[in-house]
Amino acid sequence: MKKAEDFLVKKLEERKQSNNLRLLPAVTPNLIDFCSNDYLGFTRSSLLKDKIKIFEQQIGITENGSGGSRLLSGNRKFTEETEDFIARFHETESALLFNSGYDANLGLLSCLGQRGDIIIYDELIHASLIDGARLSFADRLKFKHNDIHDLELKLQKAKGIIYVVIESVYSMDGDTAPLKDIYDICEKYGANLIVDEAHAIGVFGDHGKGLVHQNGLNNRIFACVVTFGKALGCHGAAVLGSHNLRNYLINFARSFIYTTAMPLHGIMSIRAAYTLLTEQDHQQDLRQNISLYRNLAFTLKWPCINSLSAIQTIILSSAEKAKDIALYLQKSGYDVRAILSPTVAKGAERLRICLHSFNTSETIEGLILKLKTHE
């Protein structure tokens, strides 16, 4: 046991010495939110709460939990109806719910790739996709971020069943993938495209259907992962695809098979959030705030990644500087967080600024002014 404890202390000390030690943040109320993924304000939406209550009254909740996995005692008619609703919303054949985006990505990729197959992925995809690929039996290759030429070089070497894995909006840079170009190159080489839409749902496309739908690829790509803990303000995720894919995941995705199903209240929250998306355009205020921020941020001396999404970044290239400025902003009333290595590459440390429909022009202008005073 002492050797194990010594190992823990050694690794934590290494993180501390590199200025990258992670700590749970202090709970500081009343900061202006430029940190959360609650892009449309659904987590605080009274409309969403009212819709959840309507489902509770209509269906009734007699159990606190689901009681088991979906394949044992945890399946409900309302869950399957919600999956059908999600599939219709995204105009795809089927949807299968998972307990989180991490579970969805892990389950999907780990069970697909077999020996002799290959998973080719963008170098900046989310950790859950990388972990899923690692757990599969397939070979793995990564290509340079959003680089079509490098992707083609990798595809030329590929054998077996080929899966290409990307995000439509990248979580740390906020930039978008060239979806149509990547789809076309996948078609050329017979590759199956998988897109994680975690940061696009609710933000892009008609009623927030995402960039896959906006590009007309909803029934043309192999699989799409949508998550609900960001713009939809609740929890969970779904894999969208063919009926065959859904049935395959029910049989082979370990993170679906061997976990307790989401409780009914969680399913009601997802259904209510999707209903809210269908009823009105929630994106207008968010788009205006993104435009305002971009116009102001590019007057800063620090480099900013060009992003049209709700995720905006300021590259500071130093963990110490990123932490220092984030702390200064928090003390000034703005909830902005530093993103450090190894989440991003060493030397690419940054501030990650998330914009929301509920941010005001005054608070955005105030944030930029505070940043200017620290240049």
Rank of each mutant, 00 (worst) to 15 (best):
L240P: 02
F204P: 07
D84W: 00
D206C: 02
S69K: 06
Y274S: 01
G233A: 08
L108C: 09
D184V: 08
H235Q: 12
A326C: 04
T82D: 05
F89E: 11
L277V: 03
T343M: 06
N215R: 00
I353L: 10
Q280A: 15
F204E: 05
Q288V: 02
I368P: 05
R140A: 07
S332C: 09
L264D: 02
L232C: 10
L8F: 12
T28Y: 03
S318R: 05
N215A: 13
H356G: 08
L179M: 10
A261I: 03
A237F: 10
K321H: 08
R22W: 14
L371M: 12
V27I: 13
V239H: 04
A26Q: 14
N64A: 07
G174V: 05
L286H: 05
K209T: 10
S361K: 12
K49A: 15
L327V: 08
L369T: 12
L47W: 02
S318L: 02
C234F: 11
I368Q: 03
P303F: 06
Y274L: 10
I185S: 10
C35S: 11
D181F: 09
D150Y: 05
F143M: 04
A238G: 03
Q288Y: 02
L40V: 08
N105R: 12
H243S: 15
N289R: 12
S255N: 11
V169I: 14
A326E: 04
E13Q: 13
G202K: 08
T259A: 09
T227A: 11
I148D: 04
H199I: 01
K142H: 11
I325C: 07
F34R: 10
F252Y: 14
K323L: 13
D50Y: 01
R350T: 03
I339C: 11
V239R: 04
L217P: 03
K144D: 09
K188E: 12
A177S: 15
R254G: 00
D206P: 00
R337V: 07
E375V: 01
I86Q: 01
D33W: 11
P263W: 02
A158Y: 09
N105E: 12
T275V: 00
F252C: 08
A231C: 04
Y39L: 06
N192G: 04
L329F: 09
F42R: 04
H126W: 07
L109G: 07
Q57K: 15
L292R: 11
N215L: 07
S66W: 00
H356T: 10
G210E: 02
A345N: 03
G210K: 02
K370A: 15
D335W: 12
T260W: 00
I61A: 06
L23R: 14
H90V: 00
F7L: 15
K142C: 13
D139N: 09
